[in-house]
């Protein structure tokens, strides 16, 4: 277990340091900014999709899919991110009880 934790810690630290060390402290070309602007929607959408639809290595439409959809509806109608996550958790829990 100690080897696993040390290995994970070192590799994660290297991954996280790479960007700031290579790209910090200087002016970047416009094409780079243009790509970075679009990185947020690409990565966020991928995180939402994988966490809502994937169970391990297979796709499943289940309770948390319903919960995330309910949360999405709430933030779209009300704009409140707190209400969004509360409703998402409550809807997921509710579906699991039936």
């Amino acid at each position: 277990m100690a080897i696993t934790i040390t290995g994970c810690a070192l590799i994660t630290a290297a991954i996280k340091a790479a960007g700031p060390v290579a790209l910090g402290g200087r002016e970047l070309p416009t094409w780079f900014t243009s790509v970075v602007i679009l990185l947020s929607p690409a990565l966020l959408a991928a995180l939402v999709a994988t966490q809502a639809f994937a169970e391990g290595d297979h796709l499943a439409f289940d309770a948390d899919t319903v919960g995330v959809a309910a949360g999405g509806l709430v933030i779209w109608r009300t704009g409140s991110i707190i209400a969004c996550v509360v409703v998402a958790a409550a809807a997921t829990a509710a579906v699991r009880t039936v």
């Binding site: 996280k16 790479a18 960007g19 700031p20 910090g24 402290g25 970075v36 990185l39 990565l43």
Partner: peptide
């Protein structure tokens, strides 16, 4: 975290060591 850290890289101030620490 590779694309994420590449995206924030230019927004961090400080020298390489300081930026690497912030990247964590």
């Amino acid at each position: 975290f590779l694309p994420m850290s590449a995206a924030v890289g230019p927004s961090f101030s400080g020298g390489p060591l300081k930026r690497a620490a912030k990247g964590q």
